[in-house]
Design a protein around this nucleic acid. Structure first.
Length: 137
DNA sequence: GCCAACGTTGGC
DNA sequence: GCCAACGTTGGC
């Protein structure tokens, strides 16, 4: 099983929106970046991810699970773009802000820090554990 | 609201 | 196939 991070502008699609979908989950659609798409193609059902709010919040806010492997993105007919489905699993008791991540030397290699514009990113098992703990889980 | 970083497009 | 122009993202 692998770990990931999904980035979203809360104004467009927030953790609350994701939670509202409950176990039905939702497509992680709208990604138009090859690197991000390729990561989604590598995902398997059962993989876990962090849900990150960009812009105003700049924090990891919850945990999500991949519930469908990559398939055509329903928001476009362009066959280049596909996406997975994810559902909310649980919120983090404490938000883990970008500042916190940047301040922790163990997290200095995270894509979140090194490649700030990438919207879907891999997370190592070690990073997963550290951020979970910082989040109070 | 600005700007740096970076990805994409299109002319050559 | 290169590169300039342009568009977008996201931190600050």
């Amino acid at each position: 099983m692998a770990f990931w991070l999904f980035k979203s502008e809360p104004d467009a699609w927030s953790w609350a929106d994701q939670v509202a979908k409950a176990d039905a989950g939702e497509e992680w659609n709208g990604v138009r970046n090859y690197q991000a798409r390729n990561f989604m193609r590598q995902m398997a059902v059962g993989d876990l991810g962090f849900f990150y709010h960009s812009q105003k919040d700049r924090a990891v806010v919850g945990i999500v699970e991949v519930i469908a492997e990559s398939h055509q993105d329903s928001t476009t007919d362009d066959p280049r773009w596909d996406c997975v489905d994810i559902k909310a699993v649980e919120p983090l008791p404490r938000l883990v802000t970008l500042d916190t991540v940047k301040a922790d030397p163990r997290l200095s290699e995270m894509a979140l820090v090194r490649q700030s514009r990438l919207s879907v990113q891999p997370v190592t098992a070690e990073e997963w554990q550290i951020v979970r703990t910082l989040g109070g889980l």
